[in-house]
Amino acid sequence: MALLEVRSLVKHYPVRVGLFSRRQAKAVDDVNLTVNPGETIGIVGESGSGKTTLARCILRMIEPTSGEVIFDGVDLLKLGQSSLRTKRRELAVVYQNPYLSLSPRLAVRDLVSEPLVTHTSLRGDALNDRVVENLEAVGLSADYLNKRSRQLSGGQAQRVAIARALVLRPKLIVLDEPTSALDVSVQAQVLNLLVKLRTELGFTYLFISHNLDVVQHLADRIAVMYLGKVVEVGTTDQVFSQATHPYTMALLAATPEPHPDRKASLVTVQGSVPSLTAPPTGCHYHPRCQWAVERCRHEMPALRLDEDRRAVRCHFPREYFQASKKFE
């Protein structure tokens, strides 16, 4: 059974345009997603694609407009405040910027023990031992117990945030761009740590990133989002070696590859992200797609499901894939 199943999740924000009229910004628009236990799913997309909003809806940091979030057999969106609070024990998040997500006045000891104090009856020495144990799991030591986040480097602070997330051994850890605020040299260390923890403790990750390289390093499956919708789903290999949606292809092409033989790809993203309040008609991607035809301007493609859970939201997926191969 799936650990997390997101069913037709929608989050609309009312946006004021002009003095009296309002429009809906469809930040997350009919998203379906399945995460199996032990699996790492990567959610990829540019800024404004709704990937963080999706995560915030799943965690109920914001209330979605409609949909279902079945986590561990329970619809999180139907839970009352107190049962939700109990359920939060099974969920954890690591945020982008540890300096913002860690309370500036609390010592590492209190930051890491907070989930334990909230959900267990561990206190005193036993609590302290558990905190140290988890600090060691993320490559820190008891020396850090009394430090505050501003006294730590970015990598160390993010390790504290990770220790805080794993201290209760949650069933699902949401990683919201956990490396993008860090120095490049530290990014790899943190990613390797995440991989190590997954192998040792069997965590399930929902990994959000705009960086395909980072996602490739970690994810088993990838969902690509564009303007609030999932446009392509597949295993990491499938998405990287045979992307079928033009947007995915463009994203892949945008990642520079340090190899002298590799020429710049012909697939590029043109223009900028359209407004969420006035999305393009038909396929949302058509104004930026180099292969768009008349049909794309009028008709929104459905998410076509192929065998082995592969999905793509495009009218002509394979053809473009082949077309682009031909040009290369």
């Binding site: 940091m61 939060r88 998040v93 309370s103 500036p104 209190d110 907070e114 909230t118």
Partner: peptide, 20 residues
């Protein structure tokens, strides 16, 4: 964000007020 983070951990509202 750190207030939201505490909220997502499941820390109660009054504890958030007192501690954060």
């Amino acid at each position: 964000p750190f207030i939201e983070a505490a909220h997502v951990i499941g820390v109660g509202n009054f504890t958030i007020i007192a501690r954060h």
